[in-house]
Simulated scan of single mutants.
Amino acid sequence: MGEWLARRRKPEVWAAVADGQRERLEAAGVTPLPPAPVPVPADPDVPAEPSTAPVSPFERDIGP
């Protein structure tokens, strides 16, 4: 039941559910999930911060 309900709450699936079924789901307190946020592209004028990820010794010794 949980997987079925989780699928029905996805926005793309909710839109495809029949009107009558959607009304019954809403009457039972089931609502669609909010749409996923759209990632904001990075501003090209702002320099990217250097990575703080560890670098392997092999990568560190390779020069330009």
Rank of each mutant, 00 (worst) to 15 (best):
E26W: 01
D43A: 04
A42D: 09
Q21N: 12
V30F: 08
E59F: 00
V40P: 00
A16V: 01
L5V: 08
V17C: 11
P54Q: 02
T52C: 14
T31A: 15
Q21K: 05
A42L: 05
S51P: 05
P47L: 06
L5D: 08
D19G: 14
P35C: 04
A28E: 10
T31D: 15
A42I: 03
P64C: 07
P47W: 03
P54D: 05
R7D: 15
G63I: 05
A28P: 04
R24E: 14
A28H: 07
A48I: 02
R24Y: 09
D45C: 01
P47A: 11
A28F: 10
V30M: 07
D19C: 09
V46D: 11
D61L: 06
P37L: 15
V17P: 13
R22H: 11
P32L: 08
A18F: 04
A15D: 09
P35S: 14
V46C: 10
V55I: 13
I62W: 09
P32C: 11
D45R: 02
P11Q: 06
V46E: 14
P39W: 09
L5G: 11
L33H: 07
P37N: 11
E26T: 05
G63W: 08
E3G: 15
E23S: 13
R60G: 01
Q21D: 14
G63L: 12
W4Y: 11
P34K: 05
P41A: 12
E49N: 01
D45M: 04
P32S: 09
A6K: 10
A16N: 11
L5H: 02
P50K: 00
A53Q: 06
K10G: 13
P34D: 05
A53M: 06
G29K: 10
A42F: 03
V13K: 10
A16E: 04
A28K: 08
P37Q: 14
G2I: 04
R9Q: 15
A27V: 00
S56P: 00
M1D: 12
W4L: 15
V30A: 13
V17E: 13
D43L: 03
I62R: 12
L25A: 02
R24L: 14
E23Y: 01
P35Y: 07
S51M: 03
K10C: 14
R60W: 02
E26Y: 01
L33C: 10
L33A: 15
R60P: 00
A48C: 04
D45S: 03
P11E: 10
G2K: 09
T52L: 12
L33W: 07
P37I: 09
P57W: 05
A27W: 02
A42P: 01
V13S: 10
P37V: 13
D61W: 03
P47K: 02
R9I: 14
T31G: 14
P34N: 03
P44A: 03
G29N: 08
R60M: 01
V17A: 13
R8Y: 08
V13H: 10
V40R: 04
R9C: 15
A36L: 08
E59P: 00
P64H: 02
A42T: 01
F58V: 01
A6F: 07
L5S: 06
V38F: 07
P50W: 01
P50E: 06
A6I: 07
I62T: 10
L5M: 13
V13M: 13
V38R: 11
A27Y: 01
P34R: 06
V13F: 06
V55L: 13
F58N: 00
M1P: 12
P47M: 05
R9F: 15
K10W: 11
I62P: 01
M1H: 11
E26A: 08
G20F: 03
